Amino acid sequence: MPDDLGLPVDAETALAGAPPGHKDELRLWLRLLTCTNLIEAEIRRRLRLEFGTTLPRFDLLAQLDRAPGGLTLGEVSRRMMVSNGNVTGLAARLEEEGLIERRTSPADRRAQTLRLTPRGRREFARQSRAHEGWIAELLAGLAEEERAALHRLLGRAKASVRAGLEGEAP
């Protein structure tokens, strides 16, 4: 939804002028969502400009970096929370570029294991260093104590959500 100047307005800003009665929980969720969307959009932009890549490609490389022995397509799709088809397409393009390799799983000859190639490991290390710097830059306006407090409170919020999903009191 645009504002009076025609600029897009996020859901949190749109809610700011709403009449009382909106729950604090909704406002909190919208604040979290707005922060996530702002950061993600900037990371996507920088990955595209600096490395000519996308966030899903970066995420797939990150998953494989955390699993030096490799992961099956199914494991990658579960970790990334996307369909096997999405992973298959990403993997094919990354394989063509020499960043990952596919091998038949020794445990199940029907399954394919994906692993970073040495070139892929170097490229991901380069992208990862930049990504870490970008995140630090975007959150630099928070003092160390504020970051620690926010991290702790978000941990409690995560536990509350999980408990709510499991039907337990937080």
Rank of each mutant, 00 (worst) to 15 (best):
M81Q: 15
G85T: 14
R93D: 15
R129K: 11
T113C: 11
T104G: 06
K23G: 15
G155P: 07
R93V: 12
E123R: 14
E75W: 00
V76L: 03
L71E: 07
F51A: 05
D108R: 11
L60Q: 05
A92L: 15
R129F: 08
E42V: 08
G120Q: 01
A136L: 11
R66W: 04
G89L: 09
A41D: 14
R152P: 00
E96S: 15
Q127R: 12
M1H: 14
L142D: 02
R78E: 10
G167R: 01
L114H: 02
R78Y: 09
A92H: 11
A62G: 11
R79S: 07
E97V: 03
H131Q: 11
N84R: 14
Q127L: 08
D24Y: 09
G133C: 01
S128F: 11
N84S: 13
A125I: 03
P2A: 05
T88I: 11
L47I: 05
L99C: 08
G164P: 06
A136R: 12
T34H: 09
G164L: 12
G70S: 03
E144A: 00
R147C: 07
L60V: 03
R102A: 03
T54C: 06
T117A: 04
P19V: 13
A140Q: 07
A159Y: 00
G17D: 10
V76T: 06
R78T: 05
G70N: 06
T104H: 01
P8K: 04
V82W: 00
G74C: 04
H22L: 14
E145N: 02
E168H: 13
R110C: 06
D24E: 13
V9T: 10
L33P: 04
G6M: 03
V87C: 04
G164M: 07
V9M: 13
Q127I: 07
A11V: 12
E50S: 14
G70H: 03
P68M: 03
R119E: 15
V87G: 02
V87S: 01
A149N: 02
R27L: 08
N86P: 01
V9A: 10
A157R: 10
A107R: 13
V76S: 07
I39F: 02
M80E: 03
L32Q: 09
R48L: 08
L150N: 00
R66Y: 08
R31E: 14
E12D: 10
M1W: 09
T13K: 04
R129S: 08
L28S: 10
L90D: 03
W29D: 12
G133S: 04
V76M: 05
A140R: 09
A41E: 15
A157F: 10
D65Y: 13
V87Q: 01
G120I: 05
V87A: 02
I135W: 01
E95D: 08
G155A: 05
D10P: 00
R121V: 07
L30A: 06
V9K: 10
C35H: 12
I100F: 05
E101F: 04
R156E: 14
L28A: 14
R121S: 11
M80L: 15
G85F: 08
G6S: 06
Q112V: 14
E75N: 06
L26M: 13
L142G: 01
V76N: 03
A136K: 08
L49F: 12
A91D: 06
D4R: 14
L5M: 13
E168Q: 15
P19K: 15
A169V: 12
R78M: 07
M80K: 03
